[in-house]
Design a protein around this nucleic acid. Structure first.
Length: 789
RNA sequence: UGGCCCGUCGUCUAAUGGCAGGACACCGGUCUUUGGAACCGGCGGUGGUGGUUCGAAUCCACCCGGGCCAACCA
């Protein structure tokens, strides 16, 4: 059992179990199945990291890249290329396993024919509207199509003619014959093939019938030998069709579908349809706009694949719907870049500084390290210092707020890697705006040190005016101004539209920035930290030789901005916008429903069908069961029958049997009915009896039940065979108790200082030691005596 | 409204009947020639009510809340 290391996501646990149980023949096979109708986004990245990550981790294992191109009207070769580039860029390799749904059209067609031949599919000639009407609703069952009972021959003939192009779009469809009354709408005779006289980007005009997702996907998986088909939560309902097809058709392998929660990120949208709208309506410059959550956008922004992978790993894989805080992505990006980006100086909004005691025309080349002391990389570059410099406008304040550590009139500040300067004079224009600062430098402070030991609290970045390179900088901020634009739009009702929540300040283009000259010869893909500002790189599209354009990938963490934003009403203009409304909370159980029940009937279901009530009452009287238990058993005649037979067996009390049936059996039962279990009422009763007699502890009995549920068997024999006879002899238990106490001095101390809950821990240890044999009540007594005494 | 799925710190996620833990965020501190990084510390959670059990986040019942499904999309 305990072969599963804790902390692994549920999918890997399933794979581990399947491997351990020998359910995977050879390789673990996963697949990433995008439809080539749009660009990949970071949500897809999560899926890619999962699927390809599994293929990297397990040993024989592989992950296929398969284009699910079953809809010719939306798909395009351009997306196929973009998607391949993105997956590769993320660092994954599908080797020879590149597939296309369209590559299976012939085989898929053969499966459809097989289904027809088995009487499990038919050609429906209703119109689209008629089909919709007849499907019913979630509460009312559908009605069968008048064409549902066509003969196999007629279906075969019609289907062939569909393929041959004898009909117009929509004239006929192929449907599975399942159950028009299924509570799962998807099982109400799902469509398998539709006619589409459309040009397919790969198969051209060879086909005019195309399979639908549900039909195609399951069979593609089976054809490829996929073992674990991982998709997102919204496909949960589709699993029933998936399994139905795999069961009915003569497929070469038996894949299984598992669903995990898709990634949602705050302050953006993650649906291809909505992203496509942003592109088409030109709210962004394209799929690769650096504000887009697309892989292409992130890449152009300058985010590294390593950062994306690490983010995806941080987020984890689970089944609970969730939204991830964008700060987590930012952390992953900074964490990656901090370790590899060389530091350079760039002034975004320059303010002139004249160093009056620096000789006119003289330029000194300072040697400045590229990495801080805590980054284990070597290197430096020359950094020119001259009489005229640029510093950041924000780094000077005539009237500084409390705690301001930068340049003020009459004050000193350190120029990073340079000298300490003092501001002697503030020169203003007619409008009163600060034009330049006249400063003096301290020649003793070359490199930034203060030989006299005086403390200079502030250090600011700067660039030589004589040598600085003008450049353009793009500052990006979150695309939307609310965390959940879709929810915000929905909250507005009918006319609500998510684009209303676009952040107008999501792109700020800074024209007159100045950067130090050392970056001029760098390779174009170099990421930098502009000290005190953030991580940047050259925009690969807009930069040109000698005219660099830099994208801000992410800001640095800025505790000053946080603090000043908290103390003043407004943040700095360039700072990130503050979330506007806090809408769409995940309203969690403010719990009405209590208070209305004083001595009432807790837990009694308000509506119990009369016949169930009657049977339950009989059980209550006959066996002395509680009302709730009786109703549970009475709900299903098979359950009741099982219980009655078990109770009649006489080995255990009726209450004991009821307890085990209600509380212990269901988790082991799985999808099986009671009749399908490899044991009967007698065995269950005898197990309950063993427990009541004290022959076995409840932990032991549960172990026995687990085995019984899997392989059947006689409880008494199993107790014996598994050596699970309960140990109730204090003499035998005491040494173990001592051992456990001796082995956990820390816990003992904690227990004695009041952490009484730790008894459970100690009992657990003894139970583990004895593999469930120890009598827990006795163990508790002994433990308490030893621990307290 | 029928069916299926899901509720654990503010957020994401572990614990698979035996000490509710980690990450991000937040707060405080140390250090600092980046108001960065690093390090240390703190805050903070099992939706509710009953039940089963020596012991429940975990099993059972009911309630509450959320998601998905009525495309010839995937």
């Amino acid at each position: 059992m305990s072969s599963t290391p804790p902390g692994r996501d549920f999918i890997r646990q399933i794979i581990d179990r399947d491997l351990a149980a020998g359910r995977v023949g050879g390789e673990v096979v996963t697949r990433f199945p995008p439809e080539p109708n749009g660009f990949l986004h970071i949500g897809h990245a999560k899926s890619i990291v999962l699927n390809f990550g599994i293929a990297e981790e397990y040993d024989p294992a592989r992950c296929h890249l398969r284009f699910d191109d079953t809809n010719p009207t939306t798909e395009d070769i351009r997306y196929v290329e973009a998607i391949q580039e993105d997956v590769r860029w993320l660092g994954y390799d599908w080797g020879e396993h590149l597939y296309f749904a369209s590559g299976y059209f012939e085989r898929l067609h053969a499966f459809a024919v097989e289904l027809i031949e088995k009487g499990l599919a038919y050609v429906d000639s209703q119109s689209e509207e008629e089909i919709r009407e007849a499907r019913g609703t979630v509460t009312v069952p559908g009605t069968p199509s008048p064409f549902r009972e066509r003969s196999v021959e007629e279906n075969l003939d019609l289907f062939e003619r569909m393929r041959a192009g004898e009909f117009r779009d929509g004239e006929h469809v192929l449907r599975a014959k399942i159950d028009m009354a299924s509570p799962n709408m998807l099982m109400r005779d799902p469509l398998l093939y539709r006619i589409r006289h459309a040009h397919h980007y790969r198969t051209g005009d060879r086909w005019c019938i195309y399979p639908l997702y549900d039909f195609a996907h399951a069979l593609e998986d089976a054809i490829e030998g996929v073992t674990h088909s991982l998709c997102t939560l919204e496909f949960e309902n589709n699993r029933e069709i998936y399994d139905w097809l795999i069961e009915k058709l003569s497929v070469p392998s038996r894949p299984r579908q598992y669903e995990f929660a898709r990634l949602n990120l705050d302050y953006t949208v993650m649906s291809k349809r909505k992203l496509l709208r942003l592109v088409n309506e030109e709210r962004v410059s394209g799929w690769d706009d650096p504000r887009m959550p697309t892989v292409a956008g992130l890449r152009r922004r300058g985010v590294t694949p390593e950062a994306i992978r690490s983010f995806c790993e941080m987020v984890g894989v689970a089944k609970a719907d969730s939204r991830v805080d964008i700060a987590k992505l930012e952390y992953a990006i900074r964490d990656d870049l901090n370790r590899k980006a060389p530091r350079v100086l760039c002034v975004l909004r320059p303010l002139r500084v004249v160093v009056t005691n620096w000789p006119e025309g003289e330029i000194e080349e300072l040697d400045a390290p590229l990495y801080p002391h805590d980054v284990p990389l070597e290197g430096s570059r020359p950094l020119p210092f001259s009489r005229e410099l640029w510093i950041e406008r924000d780094d000077f304040a005539e009237d500084p707020p409390k705690g301001f550590r930068r340049l003020v009139p009459g004050g000193e500040v350190r120029l990073r890697y340079g000298y300490v300067i003092r501001c002697d004079e503030v020169v203003k224009d007619a409008a009163g705006r600060v034009r330049e600062l006249r400063c003096t430098y301290d020649p003793e402070t070359r490199g930034g040190d203060t030989p006299d030991g005086r403390r200079i609290p502030g250090t600011i970045h700067w660039v030589s005016a004589a040598r600085g390179i003008p450049c353009r900088v793009h500052l990006y901020d979150r695309l939307f101004e609310v965390p959940d634009p879709e929810a915000a739009a929905a909250a507005q009702g009918e006319g609500g539209d998510f684009t209303a929540f676009l952040n107008p300040g999501s792109l700020e283009e800074v024209e007159g920035a100045i950067i130090e000259p050392s970056v001029l010869g760098d390779p174009p893909d170099r990421r930098y930290q502009f000290e005190r500002l953030g991580y940047f790189w050259r925009d690969p599209v807009e930069s040109s030789e000698g005219h660099p354009v830099f994208n801000r990938i992410v800001t640095l963490r800025d505790s000053w901005a946080r603090r000043s934003a908290a103390h003043t009403d407004e943040g700095t203009p360039g700072a990130r916008c503050t979330p506007a409304a806090p809408p769409a909370t995940k309203g969690r159980a403010e719990s009405p429903g209590e208070g209305a029940r004083v001595g009432g009937t807790p837990g009694a279901p308000p509506e119990v069908p009369p016949e169930v009530r009657a049977r339950a009452e009989a059980l209550e009287q006959e066996f002395g069961l509680g009302r709730v238990d009786a109703e549970i058993l009475a709900r299903d005649p098979e359950v009741e029958g099982f219980f009655r037979r078990a109770a009649a067996e006489g080995s255990a009390s009726a209450a004991g049997v009821a307890n085990w049936m209600i509380h212990e059996l269901p988790p082991h039962q799985g999808d099986r009915t009671l009749g399908e279990l490899p044991f009967g009422p007698g065995e269950l009763a005898r197990l309950a009896g063993l427990l009541e007699e004290g022959r076995v502890s409840s932990s032991g009995a549960r172990k026995v039940l687990e085995v019984m549920a899997a392989d059947g068997g006689d409880p008494a024999a199993l107790v014996e065979g598994m050596k699970l006879e309960q140990e109730s002899d204090p003499e035998a238990l005491l040494p173990l108790v001592h051992e456990v106490i001796a082995a956990h001095p820390g816990e003992v101390a904690a227990y004695r200082s009041g952490k009484r809950g730790l008894v459970g821990f100690f009992i657990g240890q003894v139970m583990r030691e004895t593999r469930g044999r120890a009598n827990p009540e006795l163990t508790r007594k002994l433990l308490e005596r030893e621990l307290d005494g």
